[in-house]
């Protein structure tokens, strides 16, 4: 034991020397170690799959592996905390989805978006309003008329208060001037089941989760609330085309802890953007149903802010603001 001590001391000194040397190297060497990509949701979901595609493509750009680490739990807030509390050296980043905006008001233990630094935007996924093929609503207008005629009677399937689908229908209510009976389910899949079983008349979720049913003629997408039609259901007109000005959807961004050195932030932004702008990547993502609309630091930050402004009044109205109440 005693004999080995000097040896280990020597190793420690040598290691420290190398570390000093490494620090002295020019900053251009970033990233000099693998980048940890924190995924606040469990494997296998849309977020996980999309970010793994990004990580794979970005690994080539950075010349260092981008390793996806799943840290699910507490509605994403456990993973987000790990991103926010990581050393701000650019070697830890992660995904921030639109759900994080609501989480900061719903959950006092969740991090605020102001604890994070946006890096890049993956995509802006429009929401849609869906009904059964045998439903009397053939278009968005018929739905709006029926909902106005009998407020609060049309049953809409969505997820729990504060969730994405809940946010979608709440924004629709506000922007279309209607009122529905919001029935909460455990997620997108149970909501689709409920629509198929006839328990609810409409659901408000993202297009990829229902595109196959729409193609098979079992469900009808009434409209997509995006800037343009969705490539998975090109026959469905947007809300705007049907005369309703409503842009509602979710998004996925890449972010890191606050206070990263400017040059490293720049390098990360460039690496992720280059990766997402590649044709091969675009095609791979498209084949899996993801709409990729890349953006940088500025676009991501803007999206965070507009979503925050759009969402806050709705959460306040539904009595969901439990923390960070704005004066």
């Amino acid at each position: 034991m005693l004999k080995t001590l000097p040896k280990s001391c020597l190793i420690a000194v040598a290691a420290a020397g190398f570390a000093l040397l490494a620090c002295a190297l020019p900053a251009g060497a970033f990233p000099d170690q693998p980048i940890k990509f924190i995924m606040p949701w469990p494997p296998g979901g849309g977020s996980d799959i999309s970010m793994r595609l990004v990580a794979e493509a970005a690994s080539k750009k950075f010349g260092k592996p981008v390793v996806v680490v799943n840290r699910p739990g507490a509605g994403g807030s456990i993973g987000i905390r790990e991103i926010a509390e990581a050393p701000a050296d650019g070697h830890t980043v992660g995904m921030i989805g639109s759900g994080a905006v609501a989480a900061q008001y719903l959950n006092a233990n969740a991090n605020a978006l102001s604890d994070l630094q946006p890096i890049a935007l993956f995509g802006d996924e429009p929401a849609a309003l869906i009904t059964r093929s045998d439903s009397p609503f053939k278009s968005l207008k018929e739905f709006v008329d029926a909902a106005k005629a009998a407020p609060g009677t049309i049953r809409n399937g969505n997820d729990q208060p504060g969730g994405a689908a809940f946010t979608f229908i709440s924004l629709y209510e506000r922007l279309l001037g209607v009122k529905v009976n919001k029935v909460a389910y455990g997620g997108y899949a149970p909501a689709v089941t409920a629509l198929l079983s006839g328990e609810v008349q409409t659901i408000s979720i993202a297009v990829p989760d229902v595109a196959e049913y729409h193609k098979a003629g079992r469900l009808r997408i009434l409209g997509v609330s995006g800037a343009s039609r969705h490539f998975l259901a090109p026959d469905v007109p947007t809300f705007k085309e049907q005369g309703f000005d409503a842009m509602v959807g979710s998004w996925r961004t890449i972010a890191g802890p606050k206070g990263m050195p400017a040059d490293r932030l720049k390098a990360l932004e460039k690496g992720f953007l280059d990766a997402m702008n590649e044709t091969e990547f675009r095609e791979r993502a498209r084949a899996r149903g993801f709409l990729v609309t890349p953006g940088g630091v500025v676009e991501s930050g803007k999206l965070w802010d507009t979503h925050d402004q759009q969402l806050y009044p709705i959460l306040l109205e539904s009595g969901l603001v439990k923390a960070r109440k704005k004066g």
């Binding site: 469990p42 494997p43 296998g44 979901g45 849309g46 996980d48 799959i49 793994r52 899949a189 689709v192 089941t193 198929l196 990829p208 595109a211 196959e212 049913y213 193609k215 098979a216 079992r218 791979r284 084949a287 899996r288 149903g289």
Partner: peptide
């Protein structure tokens, strides 16, 4: 294409990874 449990949701994820859309067809 409806997962009745978290495990089946993972199976659907495994299909999505390969660009296979689970659904009624």
């Amino acid at each position: 294409g409806i997962p009745p449990s978290a495990l089946m949701a993972l199976m659907i994820g495994a299909m999505m990874i390969h660009g296979i859309a689970p659904g009624p067809n």
